[in-house]
């Protein structure tokens, strides 16, 4: 029985990735493949953000900084010392984890909007530093990675290679997320999100658990950053660490369903293709128009369906069950 239950739980995950693999065979057009990769990538980034932002309710608006740390760490190791990005991933994780521990521990004293503001400022400081530290990062000119396809270099001749890499990234993030969610840590993080004082009174070391969530979330975001750098093959502070990118990770989780396993994935599937198509269609009409519409959708969705789509669906299911009962 227990075994069947476990299988039942992982069924959506297996089904989802089966569909993704089938899609990877169907989608051949370069533009669509790019959208596919970005969707998987953003789904992974937003899910990583969700661990601290959704489960623990700590609304970080500075996660692009961790993506930037990951991208710069692996790129610099590769360009300057010829270190394989696979080892770069490990270095990225270590640095991102250390930075997040350093910044998070004190910032968790802050709550709600204040926490969000402090992380927004943190992200901006990191971006400004990346811009200023020209000797290391080449400043706003950015760094280009020469294209030398091989698995060891994390570069693929065929775009579909990136599709699979993005898929693996998302799978890793989702497995870690679901493990956390279905464990003591997940329950504790939820309790912290809902009411920190009550959580403490129930024996939860709230600072420790928030730190834990933050470090895992930042590490995964840094891994995403490495992938991003070796997919785009060019990194610069404003393309990588802009607060708009942080906001996007957050927004996807909020639209899909904050603190749910699948919410960020649903959010990414909706937002990325939508914004990419809008960019393609409306980009010709005039600069910025697609973002006006994007912003309007954001405002309307946030106001009208604050629980996110996943929760909206759950509410409907619950109501149906009530009527039946």
């Amino acid at each position: 029985m227990e075994f069947l239950k476990q299988r039942g739980k992982s069924f959506p995950m297996v089904a989802f990735f089966a569909v993704m693999i089938i899609l990877s065979f169907i989608i051949k057009n370069g533009f669509y493949q790019h959208i596919f990769i970005l969707t998987l990538f953003y789904a992974g980034m937003s899910s990583a953000w969700n661990i601290v932002g959704g489960y623990a309710g700590q609304l970080s608006l500075g996660h692009a900084a961790y993506m930037g740390i990951g991208a710069y760490t692996a790129t610099l190791l590769y360009l300057k010392m010829g270190v394989s990005p696979w080892i770069g991933i490990i270095a990225a994780i270590i640095i991102a984890a250390a930075v997040s521990a350093l910044i998070s521990y004190p910032s968790f004293k802050l709550h709600g909007t204040f926490f969000a503001m402090s992380t927004l400022a943190f992200g901006e400081v990191m971006r400004i530093i990346a811009n200023y530290w020209r000797g290391l990062t080449n400043g706003s000119v950015g760094l280009s990675i020469p294209f030398k396809p091989s698995l060891a270099h994390l570069m693929f001749e065929e775009r579909v290679g990136y599709v699979y890499f993005a898929m693996i990234f998302l799978a890793v993030v989702l497995v870690i997320s679901s493990r956390i969610k279905e464990s003591r840590a997940g329950y504790y993080l939820n309790a912290i999100r809902e009411n920190e004082i009550a959580a403490r009174s129930l024996g939860i070391n709230t600072s420790l658990y928030k730190l834990y969530a933050s470090v895992i979330s930042a590490s995964l975001a840094a891994v995403g950053g490495v992938f991003y750098a070796f997919y785009i093959l060019y990194i610069d502070p404003s393309g990588l660490m802009d607060s708009a990118i942080s906001i996007q990770f957050t927004l996807m989780a909020i639209i899909g369903g904050l603190g749910t396993l699948w919410g960020p994935v649903v959010g990414a599937i909706l937002i990325i293709p939508l914004s990419e198509f809008m960019r393609a269609w409306l980009g010709g009409v005039g600069q910025g128009l697609h973002l006006v519409i994007y912003g309007l959708i954001m405002v309307v969705v946030v106001i009208v369906s604050p629980g996110g789509l996943i929760n909206g669906y759950k509410v409907i299911i619950r109501k149906i069950k009530k009527i039946k009962a």
């Binding site: 609304l59 608006l61 709600g112 909007t113 969000a116 708009a244 906001i247 957050t250 927004l251 909020i254 904050l258 005039g286 600069q287 910025g288 128009l289 973002l291 006006v292 994007y294 912003g295 309007l296 954001m298 405002v299 946030v302 106001i303 604050p306």
Partner: peptide, 26 residues
């Protein structure tokens, strides 16, 4: 949104800022 959660308030106003910024750009 006045009586809603922080994240709703943050994102509604952030959304507004995206709208106005890009409207100006457009």
């Amino acid at each position: 949104i006045v009586d809603r959660k922080h994240e709703i308030q943050i994102f509604a106003t952030l959304g507004l800022s995206i709208v106005f910024q890009n409207m100006a750009l457009f």
